[in-house]
Design a protein around this nucleic acid. Structure first.
Length: 484
RNA sequence: CGGGGUGUAGUGUAACGGUAGCACGAGUCCUUUGGGAGGAUUUAGUUCGGGUUCAAAUCCCGCCACCCCGACCA
């Protein structure tokens, strides 16, 4: 059966060739295309529409949090990045640098932003002088450039799209609150919209954002058994405010460095979406983020009755289902079966067939993309039923993904166990780690697994144990996995 | 950036160093439309740049891109 679909769809099998499947689905569903420059990709309209929907829901939450949108330049003077030592060390290997402008060699090279901390904070130091200027909460939607050596659609590109929030606070507690707010918001976006479960926790010293005090991360599990860092939120402490000379006078007139945060969610999330839910017939999109939530395929019966069917189908689209993103497929010259396959490839969550039979019985035939279930609904109940079914699809996708994640967290009692899991199903591994970077590095070299995070639950759960690698005392159980 | 592989029409493929062929797609017309319909007709290609040869898709060198595996990373 799987082979049959493989042939029919001209799609690699998700199970047998995950990488091939991923690329095929993206190209054939029209999400994206290769660009002439290695590592760059084109977001085609269908893929960009998903990004716009993600932007819309996240942007509302960011604004409701009191953060305002702004836009900073794409070029950053090279010297700005040098100001924070860890920051420049972390980013220098992957910078794109402009040396010529307007035909002339530039006096100071310009870095194409890999992230905007430095250019924003140079401005913040001008804008902030009093406690009355705080908190300052700025977000920007933009592209960033990181010269990745091994690109992959959406997951890892030289240029990608994201949102970066940057806030400045008069107290450390307030900054921490902001960092937590961002993480909770990302969790909600992933769970309620992308229908993807994730685990939140602290990054280790070596995995945290270059220049941050600490980094919170959301880690999701992909069907390949590999882990995807899905969103991050950084507590920058006073490191950047000191490097960039951001100072404010507090209520007592005392000068002090403020506490800062930065947090981001990128177009990588679309990659997660594709991987998490798709199947051998193509994409499967959750209704909340599907550019087309419902497709109506009219079935013609010959010249005579066609007009009535088309008119009724239009009425269904424009009146009964006017609250949804609906596509009415009136294209001629394609058979109904052909259209079914195409819309399945594009992952449209719900298909409505409307033909002579439905016309006669005043009903519609619905098919759920995620499990192929067919439901017959009277036109009188269609509006109500559609709402229920779309909610159900959204929930089913999330529950399936959550179940997969929970079933793939394994405890490694010792290092042999650890290695066995990594050479088998992979997924998440929970294990004691002494927090010595040497053990972390060795584990990575020997198994490809890196620390993903110290889960929020991990700290309470753990009574002191022994490091899975060196056997020395360890306070916490960390989550390991092979990262994308 | 290191190792391995691939590159022929829009896509998938075939051709010993000697006529670039097939299928799908796309265009037009007709018949069709409940799980990728049929006929007629048209269309289009050796990644790019060098070299060897009487002759190169085929052999050699290089560029670029893509895939897989590493190192680096959202």
């Amino acid at each position: 059966m799987a082979e049959k679909i493989f042939e029919k769809k001209q799609l690699a099998s998700k199970k047998e060739d995950f990488s091939g499947w991923y690329t095929d689905v993206i190209l054939k569903s029209g999400l994206a295309d290769y660009a002439p420059v290695k590592g760059c990709m084109v977001f085609k309209p269908y893929g960009y529409a998903i990004w716009e929907l993600i932007q819309k829901v996240l942007d509302e939450k960011i604004k409701a949090n009191g953060t305002k949108n702004a836009y900073f330049p794409v070029f950053i003077p090279e010297s700005f990045l040098d100001k924070e030592k860890e920051h420049i060390e972390g980013f220098s290997p992957e910078l794109a640098v402009v040396t010529i402008g307007g035909g002339k060699k530039l006096d100071e090279k310009l870095v194409v932003r890999p992230t905007s901390e430095t250019i924003m904070y140079s401005m913040f130091s001008k804008w902030i002088s009093s406690w009355r200027d705080l908190p300052l909460k700025i977000n920007q939607w933009c592209n960033v450039v990181r010269w990745e050596k091994r690109p992959r659609f959406f997951i890892r590109n030289i240029e990608f799209l994201w949102q970066e929030g940057h806030t400045v606070h008069s107290s450390e507690a307030e900054a921490k609150e902001q960092v937590n707010w961002a993480m909770k918001t990302y969790e909600e976006i992933y769970r309620s919209f992308l229908a993807i479960e994730g685990i939140t926790g602290q990054k280790s010293e070596s995995e945290k954002f270059p220049g941050a005090e600490s980094t919170l991360t959301l880690e999701s599990l992909m069907p390949s058994g590999m882990v995807l860092q899905s969103a991050t939120s950084h507590n920058l402490g006073q490191k950047f405010s000191k490097s960039f000379n951001i100072e404010f006078s507090d209520q007592e007139g005392k000068k002090s460095f403020p506490w800062q945060t930065s947090w981001g969610l990128s177009s990588r999330s679309i990659g997660a979406l594709i991987m998490a839910h798709g199947d051998d017939a193509g994409l499967v999109l959750p209704p909340a983020l599907a550019p087309i939530q419902i497709v109506i395929v009219p079935i013609f019966k010959g010249k005579e009755g066609d007009e009535a069917i088309i008119n009724k189908a239009k009425e269904i689209k424009e009146e009964i289902l006017k609250d949804y993103r609906v596509e009415l497929d009136l294209r001629e010259g394609y058979s109904a079966g052909w259209k079914f396959n195409e819309w399945e490839m594009k992952g449209v969550p719900l298909r409505i067939e409307f033909g002579p039979k439905e016309m006669e019985q005043n009903k519609a035939s619905l098919t759920k993309r995620n499990d192929g279930q067919k439901i017959s609904v009277g036109l009188g109940d269609l509006k109500e039923q559609t709402a229920k079914i779309l909610d159900k699809i959204q929930e089913e996708l999330f529950q399936k993904n959550k179940k997969y994640l929970l079933e793939n967290i394994r405890e490694a009692a010792d290092y042999d166990d650890f290695k066995k899991i990594m050479s088998g199903p992979k997924g998440f591994i929970k294990a004691y780690w002494c927090e010595d970077p040497v053990c972390e590095r060795k584990i990575k070299e020997e198994t490809k697994a890196t620390t993903r995070c110290l889960p929020e639950s991990g700290a309470q759960e753990a009574e002191a144990g022994k490091c899975v690698y060196c056997g020395k005392p360890a306070k916490n159980k960390w989550l390991f996995g092979q990262a994308y």
